[in-house]
Design a protein around this nucleic acid. Sequence first.
DNA 1: TTAGGGTTAG
Length: 587
Amino acid sequence: MVTGYAAAEASECCYEAFEVVKLMQNEDGLDPNRVTLVSLLQAAANAGSYKEGRAVHGYAVRRGIDSFDEILETSLMDMYSKCGDLEMSRSVFGRMSKRCIGSWNALIAAHVQVGQPLTAFELFQRMLQEDILPDMITLANLLSSCGDLKFLRQGKSIHGYLIRRQVQLDLVATTALIEMYSKCSRTNQGRMLFDEIQAKDVIMFNVMVSGYLQAGLPDKALETVCRMIEAGIKPNPATILNLLSVSADLGEIRIGKEVHGYIVKQGIGSNVDIANQLLSMYGKFGRIEMARQIFNRITRKDLVSWTSMITSYAQHAHASDALMVFRLIHEERLQPDLVTLVSLLQAVSSLGCLTLAKEVHGHIYRNRLEKEILILNSLLTTYAKCGSLGMAECLFKSIVKKSQISWNAMISAFGMHGKCLEAIDLFNQMLKEGFQPDDITFTSILSACSHGGYVEEGWSIFKSMSEKHSVTPNTEHYSCAIDLFSRSGRLEEAYGLVQHLPPRERTSALDALLSSCRVYRNVEVGEIVGRELLDLDPDNSGTYILLANIYSEAGKWDAAARIREIAQANSLARQPGYSMIESASVQ
DNA sequence: TTAGGGTTAG
């Protein structure tokens, strides 16, 4: 009876199990034995009832069942881990005279679950030193750690171990391997294992889908979900969460709306995790009103709900609303975490308010998050965007373990403030300290050079991208280099670079180049650029006007008149100019 | 023993 309640995994059942034991003692005068205690511990562990679990431990000690057997001790460890007391779990483990595989597994699993995979790995090494042979449970847990730590080599060696020992890979083991490979950026390897299994379950599909999402392949993720549905497997809540991510990543709100409809029909909209993901998806599409409605309907909002709402506001020009939501969090007795504060910093950055930046900085200190690299990098950018390059630099210097992102953030901060030489110096220092620049580093440094007019320096850095750093220049890099040349009047060279862009992405670069042609009164290049631009975007009245001006300023009145005639024939009126000024609503 | 969510640099 007690075991039945214990297996039911609900807190009410935990109390029922304890009630049954009381009845057993009072009415029948029977004392609980080891089996009863194991069941009670299991009930407490499933319900997370620490008080009850400790009481059972105390009872066992008082009754002298303290020369515990392995099963009872392992149940104690499991109960302590599930109730969040890892120390007690370790202490029970330490006192065990004979440790069975189950107790090792319990401790390894506990460390994996609280996000300490490194310790889980250390335990595994100790286990091998003590000549204990790992079982499938140990290996599945370790594979999960390998994924989290991106330990591809160790993950592969576990896979190799399984093959060498000719272990038949079941659904769970294969799923764990697929997950490990996906998290270590080896999605294809995961896919091969996935294809080998005929009878896949919903979890395996979800893991594969999530692997594709992590790899930035939302179309493959969608294809996999479709295959799953075709195979007659019903989506579960985790599938729904994946699908909402697919929709956001593909930029296809239609999919998200369809999934929303499914959620409503299935009556699972009250699930807080699903509601959070839905809110976040609408937020990403800028559908703030929809996001807000979903947020308001969540009855038990958790920190993710609040943070998602802040992010949605912060990223779509509603910074003051983001701040307002942040202030409400405290009333809910929730403690903002690292992610909440990073989102808040985005809002502060877009307001450009230094006082607020300092206020959040204080908050970060009070919550002891001042050493988190994620927070430091965001704060650095926020200070720079709020006009205080000094504070940004000071913060950068104070970061003991700088990440590549810290360097990128500081280079871009110098760029924002027109300090091109400082940005170049920092870039060189970054290389000297052995950090690998990436595409974002180059976007920042090239844009700093182009704004500061440092043509030679910028061009030499652009060339070094593929020659020295194996970074292939993308459209943005080309645009920066084109800008670099066109601003300094080297229009032929700029036009030469435009040819490297795919035709559809040439418009804005050509637009800027045409303006430069006017500034530098270069009719030859202007004519070529203007015509190419008119081919690509014949409805842009600005191009006709600019080209006509270039002709007339060069004295080519006939050509200018012809262009104006064509514009008139196409009835392209000049767009009136306008400006928008937002009044400061937050001090 | 296997799955999911809010996040930093342009």
